[in-house]
Design a protein around this nucleic acid. Structure first.
Length: 795
RNA sequence: GGGCCCGUGGUCUAGUUGGUUAUGACGUUUCCUUGACAGGGAAAAGAUCGAGUGUUCGAAUCACUCCGGGCCCACCA
């Protein structure tokens, strides 16, 4: 044990944090013990994307999940909390291109993936260091990267299994396409962007008469395959089933009724092109319209666009408007701003292009997924509604192919003769069909000529397997680890990561991937807006660590209710930093007086001590209940109140008289006993939230006494109901009220609180609070206590 | 347009199964160099709990309407 005299005057987090972090690593405080007989609590940690540095949103939500996991660890669970990085998607692809100043297109696939893996090896350790500094209590030796061979193998096996189960198909179909990234993307990767455009009234001809149709995309005239108006629209009823002549292109298209046409919009009649938008796709399918694609995969017009062939979309639009004007086929033009779907990664306007893609068929399973959602325990419960709404709004099967180099390849070849799919053998996995050959011949025609699939899988096709990926890090324990206990994630990814993970687990094993879902909120900027690098309002957590320490930031993160967004204000970190200092100072005081404490229990406890222990046990009880429901913020709130207002402001003052009286007597022992247990209790209650300062104090004194290597491996405080005493608390609370009035009186008289006074008068009978009077006298520095009608002091 | 969440002193926030003077922090003012603490301590000022209507003996808390903010989704001719 360190002598109290040697305690440094101040707590320096800059010196302390790295030292304690090293201590945890050396002592394997967070290691998963495979031999442990304790019940397992397994966590499907969200794998962050390696894309530079950890941002504040990460720090916020990972802290919150860590509070809960540290609590569970102290509750005695064997914690399975691995750490993964999700570095297999477009985000990483772009990062690698940027860092190496290359374009993936210029590489052979194998070479490019090699470059990606090399780059990741360089970048990843520094990236993970931020998480370690934040004191995320993962077992970092249980690590995966969603692009490593382990994940490639599992992801490809998932593909093969779902293919064999009839859940995957490859089809030429209208697909959301990014012309810039040159790949198909999923519904969930779209976002809205306000774009300025013009609404153009264009002249079609029916029986030689003019028919005016408004459009923002005149360049698609060549792809116009039909015209729609609402069935009840009197203006256009007479035209139904007639043919209209498309301006400039002069082909004829049918005029048809459909309820999706809105009489209020534009001229109330609309052209349908393959494909301008989602509605066009629906019309194309429902009305069996022909397919005329005039835009290619690079976002350029093709031969179907006639004289506009080869022009970029916007160029073609400009040109065609000019031509329409010249031909007097443009009646009116008004500028508008309208939302357009763009790719979230690059901001490019998306097109819908017919191309061959792999899909997971799941629109028929909506009911199953809703049931699965009902069986999950949602914290907070209202987050489930977002999940339900997402499923209700799903319109496309899950497109899992991407036309990129980087990613996990499909374990698939095609027969050159008949086109049949030839799957890789499971023993071959992971496999790159460009570099290898199938073990089997074409199952249909036995032909030996093969063509490899060149596409890679969507990153979500892999990251939706994180529970299985994590659990199989310890293969012999797979069945004890999967399904997992908890999935923590922020509310923005309920609709993809969370949902897709349920989808895969249900499809593969008919079970939910976890029991509980803990959904955290967002860290917002000081004005409540979303932070983003592009807006320039992003806060770097690393800078906050430097200024205030990790515990201060975690303390801030513990202040928001689960699921709730929290605006970031730097001043809030000051509060956390102050709490750390206060903990240090209060502990310094306590340890000074515990130097000669021998862990003995006194024969009887003084009233003030019993008063504190009663309050402490109530807080432990509440804090535990809240943590069980993942409500860390309530635990933090209760503990903070107990520590600051009860323990520091009053209790420590109340026992000073007894502590400084060095004669060995029972009343001093009572104070020491209570001080030991209450400080230890408070440290433990705070430990999940502020792991560094609590560990520091624990190591200075308690670790030896408690014979436990780390506070984070110690047991969560348990409630002693016998110590809860409401009547005694009432009396103690009254004494505290009196003390407050004494302070007020001294403050008003502008005298120091330490100033000795003659007497304190209280408005209760001696018998009512007799057992507290000695402590009251000492705290007020009064020579005597008088009994009267109102509380007051006499100098 | 739909769904969900939120709107509490200057700022951020607790409290929301309805019930005495609405929690705490930051900031402000005044005081205190007290034997844990000046990166401190004490005290004070500061909120008709977004607006309105209703239910009730009683509403920050329940219902409805409106206003404002955020997130997600849809539309986007």
């Amino acid at each position: 044990m360190a002598e109290a005299k040697e305690l440094p005057k101040k707590y320096e987090f800059k010196e302390s944090e790295p030292r304690i972090k090293a201590f945890w690593e050396k002592n394997k405080v967070y290691s998963f013990d495979k031999k442990s007989k304790a019940k397992i609590f397994s966590v499907d940690t969200p794998p962050p994307t390696v894309s530079g540095d950890m941002h504040l949103g990460h720090a916020f939500s990972y802290s919150q999940q860590d509070f809960v996991i540290r609590y569970k660890r102290m509750q005695g669970f064997s914690i399975f909390y691995p750490f993964g990085t999700d570095d297999n998607g477009l985000a990483t692809d772009k990062l690698v291109e940027k860092l190496n100043n290359v374009r993936s297109k210029d590489f052979e696939r194998g070479k490019y993936i090699e470059l990606c893996l090399k780059t990741l090896e360089k970048v990843r350790p520094k990236f993970i260091e931020d998480w370690k500094h934040l004191a995320i209590s993962c077992d970092f030796s249980l690590a995966y990267s969603t692009i490593n061979p382990h994940c490639r193998k599992l992801s490809q096996k998932s593909f093969i299994d779902l293919y064999n189960a009839g859940r995957e198909y490859r089809k030429e179909a209208p697909t959301i396409w990014c012309p810039f990234c040159h790949t198909a993307i999923a519904q969930v990767e779209m976002e809205d962007k306000e774009i300025e455009s013009t609404f153009n009234d264009i002249v079609f001809k029916v029986d030689g008469k003019e028919l005016i149709i408004a459009t923002t995309r005149p360049e698609m005239l060549g792809s116009c395959v039909a015209i729609f108006a609402h069935p009840d629209d009197k203006r256009y009823k007479p035209l139904f089933n007639k043919k209209a002549k498309v301006p400039l292109f002069n082909h004829e298209v049918p005029i048809l009724p459909d309820e999706k046409a809105d009489p209020e919009k534009g001229t109330g009649i609309v052209m349908c092109c393959t494909f301008g938008d989602q509605t066009d796709v629906e019309w194309y399918k429902q009305h069996n319209l022909p397919l005329v694609m005039s835009i290619d995969k690079n976002g350029k017009m093709n031969e179907k666009a006639g004289k506009y062939n080869g022009l970029a979309i916007k160029e073609a639009r400009k040109q065609i408007i000019e031509d329409l004007k010249e031909a007097k086929l443009l009646k009116n033009q008004k500028p508008i701003t309208h939302p357009v779907n763009v790719h979230e990664r690059c901001g490019t306007e998306l097109e819908i292009i017919n191309s061959k893609q792999w899909f997971i068929k799941y629109l028929d399973l909506k009911g199953k997924f809703l049931d699965a959602g009902n069986k999950l325990h949602w914290y907070p419960d209202y987050m489930k509604i977002r999940y339900d709404n997402w499923i209700a709004g799903l319109k496309w099967d899950w497109c899992i192919s991407r036309q990129r180099h980087y990613g996990i390849p499909f374990p698939v070849w095609y027969c050159r003769e008949c086109g049949e799919v030839i799957l890789a053998d499971e023993k071959q996995l992971p496999v790159d069909p460009l570099a290898g050959k199938p073990k089997n011949h074409c199952p249909k025609c036995k032909c030996k000529e093969i063509l490899p699939e060149t596409d890679v899988m969507d990153t979500w096709a892999t990251s939706s397997l994180t529970p299985q990926i994590a659990a199989s890090l310890v293969p012999d324990m797979y069945d004890r680890l999967y399904p997992m206990n908890l999935r923590p994630n922020a509310h923005d990814i309920i609709t993809f990561w969370l949902f897709n993970t349920v989808v895969k687990s249900q499809m593969h094993s008919n079970v939910n991937p976890w029991q509980d879902v803990m959904v955290s909120g967002f860290a917002l900027d000081p004005h409540g807006k979303k932070m983003s690098k592009s807006k320039g309002n992003a806060i770097k957590p690393q800078e906050m660590f430097e200024k205030y320490g990790v515990d201060a930031l975690r303390f801030w993160a513990a202040g928001s209710k689960l699921g709730q967004d929290l605006p970031f204000q730097e001043k809030d970190l000051v509060t956390g930093a102050k709490t750390v200092t206060k903990l240090w100072n209060a502990s310094k005081f306590a340890l000074m007086h515990l130097e000669d404490y021998d862990l003995k229990k006194p024969n009887r406890l003084e009233a003030s001590d019993r008063w504190l222990l009663s309050k402490l046990n109530k807080v432990i009880k509440d804090a535990t209940e809240h943590f069980e429901k993942y409500e860390y913020s309530k635990t933090k709130h209760e503990t903070e109140k107990l520590f600051w207002q009860v323990f520091c402001d009053n209790y420590l003052e109340m026992i000073k008289g007894r502590l400084y009286n060095k004669e060995k007597n029972d009343s001093r022992l009572s104070a020491q006993y209570t001080l030991y247990h209450s400080l230890l209790g408070i440290l433990k209650l705070f430990a999940p939230i502020m792991p560094y300062i609590t560990e520091e104090i624990y190591q200075l004194y308690f670790a030896d006494k408690e014979k436990c290597k780390s506070i984070h491996n110690s047991s969560w405080p348990s409630v002693d109901e016998s110590l809860i005493d409401d009547k005694l608390e009432e009396k103690g609370d009254y004494v505290v009220e009196v003390i407050a009035k004494v302070r007020k009186a001294k403050s008003e008289k502008q005298i120091s609180l330490g100033k000795e006074i003659k007497s304190v008068t209280i408005d209760k009978k001696e018998a009512d609070v007799k057992e507290f009077l000695d402590d009251l006298k000492a705290t007020a520095k009064a020579e005597s206590i008088q009994f009267g009608k109102e509380v007051g002091i006499e100098l």
